[in-house]
Design a protein around this nucleic acid. Structure first.
Lengths: 212, 212
DNA sequence: TAAAAAAAGGGGATATTTCCTCATAAAACA
DNA sequence: TGTTTTATGAGGAAATATCCCCTTTTTTTA
């Protein structure tokens, strides 16, 4: 099994490598990268793994961007996302980018091997019950979750809301009137079931929609 | 060198173990624990390491609580904190608990060995320039940093501010009038140089003063 | 093409936040 | 003891956030 690791924490890569070396399945790690940019560099040079273990949160180029580019350029690479958070909206986005599953960084060794084998065979693997359940929900009822998705403007508004800017200033940045961005506010309050801007900020950070 | 690892992520422990086994200095890992409670269990059973590599953020019992208990019960154990964040106020707290230094989880292998050797000899090690600089500041000008510290009420107010409660509701929870907690707000705005409650929340989360 | 939906914008009301100044009681201190 | 500092609280005002109801323009879709 030809693998590649993309994670910004060296210790995690080290731990993963150790785990993988202990597999009964013979496996090879082609390369390790600290971010998506470096990973793409290796891949474009022809070092194409069967499965890429991709961290969601990285500096320079994060998992989402990387998965997005891989989807169009190298759709044959099976991407397994390493995620510490329960990033609902992000998971949805990554699924659209065709990733083959998620594993929590707290995964047990056997689970990792099992997951990799499943993905190698063309399957999907979700290390944690909550994520698996979410997938079912998504697949069974697309519309509900489509509504949970954020438009570009809503996302932009959300990011700017997680700063000290007032709504008036956010409106200026977005080149829209205060009255218009207020619709985004109401929409997000409804989607996230929060009652105030502070609640919105907390929700966004807790679910990994916005990084600190 | 007798070591022990306390970190909730198995992969990190695995990576650390690997790193430590590669040391030129012969080292032994007495045990690994997933949280402070388990670590204390081992220690109280007599498995006392020279140096404890302690993660700051863990479930059940975090690094701060653990360091606090170790300070009084086992002051001879040298604690080296594993930290991914630049948690200014928390670093201050941990220093008060007598920890011997901090290493970022992005540390390079040689640095870890170097740090452990220094700590073994009774020294202090700070893996990152910013942290080292902060220590100087703390030591050179205690008063400035004492003022940066938060009182119990300020801390309580800060935690409650990182929720959807209004100030009026926070005042009720704290059994104080709105006008009184407003003083805490002003104090925190000044200390953290923020301009709004959202700014306060962001600051608190970014610096690890409040957990999500 | 016509109807429906979504995006953009507005008026205006109320609640909350933010920022002043000031007063009083408790605690610390010299 | 008297003085100073700190914690507590108040009045009031301006800015911001939140929530109604409404119209116009653009985009989607039937």
């Amino acid at each position: 099994m030809k693998l590649a690791l993309c994670d910004d924490h060296q210790l995690f890569r080290k731990g993963l490598r150790q785990l993988i070396e202990d597999f009964t399945t013979p496996s090879e790690i082609l390369w390790e990268a600290e971010n998506g940019r470096d990973a793409l560099y290796y891949i474009r040079k022809g070092m194409v793994p069967e499965i890429l273990l991709l961290d969601a949160q990285m500096p320079i180029m994060d998992g989402e961007q990387t998965a997005n580019i891989l989807k169009s350029e190298f759709p044959e690479i099976k991407v397994l996302v390493l995620s510490m958070l329960d990033e609902e909206a992000r998971i949805l986005y990554l699924l659209r980018q065709g990733v083959r599953g998620f594993i929590s960084k707290d995964i047990r060794p056997q689970e990792l091997e099992e997951g990799l084998l499943i993905v190698e065979k063309g399957g999907y693997y979700f290390s944690d019950a909550a994520t698996a359940h979410m997938l079912e929900t998504i697949q069974s009822n697309k519309n509900v979750n489509e509504k949970e998705m954020l438009s570009d403007k809503e996302t932009q508004f959300l990011v700017l809301s997680c700063s000290e800017l007032t709504y008036k200033e956010i409106a200026e940045q977005m080149q829209l009137s205060f009255k218009t961005i207020d619709h985004y506010r109401i929409a997000l309050f409804g989607k996230f079931k929060v009652k105030s801007r502070v609640g919105l900020v907390i929700y966004a950070l807790k679910h990994g929609l916005v990084h600190l």
